[in-house]
Design a protein around this nucleic acid. Structure first.
Lengths: 250, 250
DNA sequence: GCGACTTTGTGCATTCATTCACAAACGACG
DNA sequence: CGTCGTTTGTGAATGAATGCACAAAGTCGC
């Protein structure tokens, strides 16, 4: 009973439906998925992949929520923005939900990515397996350091910065990853944007300036650590405060 | 980043509060700082450091907000949670505000950090300058691979996993960074928690299970890319919809 | 075919976050 | 010393996200 979870009854469930929308599930309410939901969909997707590998055919919102670390009402509401893909009394078909979430996230098409900066971080990214398996292809890896150019890193070979524009246009690259030191990042960003990149993932510790229509997300180790420090500090302060006064409740 | 920028000159400005509030008291105005604000404080802090290096003495909420990429009302409200540290008609004293934000975030004390996993990512972290300059000290770097043990990476030498517990207790480590492959992460996490770590920064692509009282933040490349893909897809869909082709829905 | 049981999807209340808009506070200047 | 322009700090309004609680919709046993 691992697979064989075809949609019961009427709908034949197309394995892959790139463009055309089947009349049945076109019930996207208004097309608008809240940002907070979008941020959680990849987490659900990963949990679903894990379940699928384990051979699970269907999963309840409760189980999936636990696996994803959220509460079940939130998960159901999140999924409801994509459509009504569960079966009451049963749960969600894992494979079908994988497809629907992937489609909602835009992962049914392949995305080409360039990574700029082949330092430690760039290398870590290039070697990170999670890229290819989710529909992201590293079109090129670039660095301004001649000593690095030509080196093979993961599946990519480091190329000189001069190839940035041609690589982007010829591969139709929409996503750029900036893994350079901070001083170089804005200039790199400008070149990416000028070459047509509209989505940027920035690892350099600064605020990038981009024109409207360009989407930037940042990943910043230092910021995450500082947030942790804040909570750690507060924990300590609370403990001291409670111990100092009489502990009312334990 | 050398913090030894020359003093702005206008004011001597001691390390503690000048006029408004008495020095170093623990009397936080109203205690609770919203989570969203905490997440932005490090951004402000970095912008402030940049301004300080440039020799700027005071900054208005408008300027600082621009530098940090937020709107000025939000910035003022955020800062107001820390106290009333601006001067009306003038702005904020940069150095003073650096101190206040640092204190709010708990960065006036030093935090010891262990990094588990000396692969590409772990190495990138160890070489990342942003650690030491913000009050974070790498107490140790650990890896289970004997081939890596003993290698010098940045300021740290890779040690065997067996030293995890002693290092944590003897250095009073409160923060652990997990930069291992996903399959190893939960076990590492359990050991960190058992050894007394209460704050964890997780780079492994899975949801960690921790007891109450332990704070986990995750950084996930794959998730960020997927969020970018979602928006990129929507941009394309909108453009197509406008041009006339009817593949917009679903 | 029917009732008991399970689980989804969602209306609603509540909490959290953002933004507006303005009075109060400040320096400058004559 | 009073007026003027500037900028903060914050009530109040708006908007987004969360979580509860339950009806609707399904399965399963008999």
């Amino acid at each position: 009973m691992t697979s064989a979870a075809e949609t019961p009854g009427s709908e034949p469930l197309p394995a892959v439906a790139p463009h055309p929308a089947p009349a049945g599930d076109a019930a996207r309410p208004a097309g608008e998925i809240p940002e907070a939901t979008v941020a959680r969909l990849p987490v659900y997707l990963r949990a679903l992949y894990t379940l699928a590998e384990r051979g699970t055919g269907t999963v309840s919102s409760e189980e999936l929520a636990t696996a994803a670390g959220v509460n079940s009402a939130k998960l159901r509401k999140d999924l409801s923005y994509l459509g009504s893909y569960g079966i009451r009394g049963v749960g969600y078909d894992v494979e079908y939900l994988v497809y629907q979430v992937s489609r909602a996230l835009g992962l049914t098409q392949n995305w080409s990515v360039v990574i700029v900066g082949a330092g430690n971080l760039g290398r870590a990214l290039a070697n990170y397996g999670g890229f290819a398996t989710r529909g992201f292809r590293i079109a090129a890896m670039l660095d301004s350091d001649p000593a690095l150019v030509g080196r093979q890193i993961g599946v990519a070979t480091v190329r000189p910065m001069s190839e940035l524009e041609p690589v982007i246009t010829s591969n139709n690259v929409a996503i750029g990853v900036i893994a350079t030191p901070a001083p170089a990042a804005q200039a790199v960003c400008d070149r990416l944007v000028a070459a047509g990149v509209t989505s940027i993932l920035n690892f350099a510790p600064l605020v990038l300036n981009v024109p409207d229509g360009v989407d930037v997300r940042k990943v910043d180790l230092s910021i995450e650590l500082q947030i942790l420090a804040f909570h750690a500090q507060r924990r300590v302060a609370m403990r001291v405060g409670h111990d100092g006064e009489s502990a009312a409740e334990a």
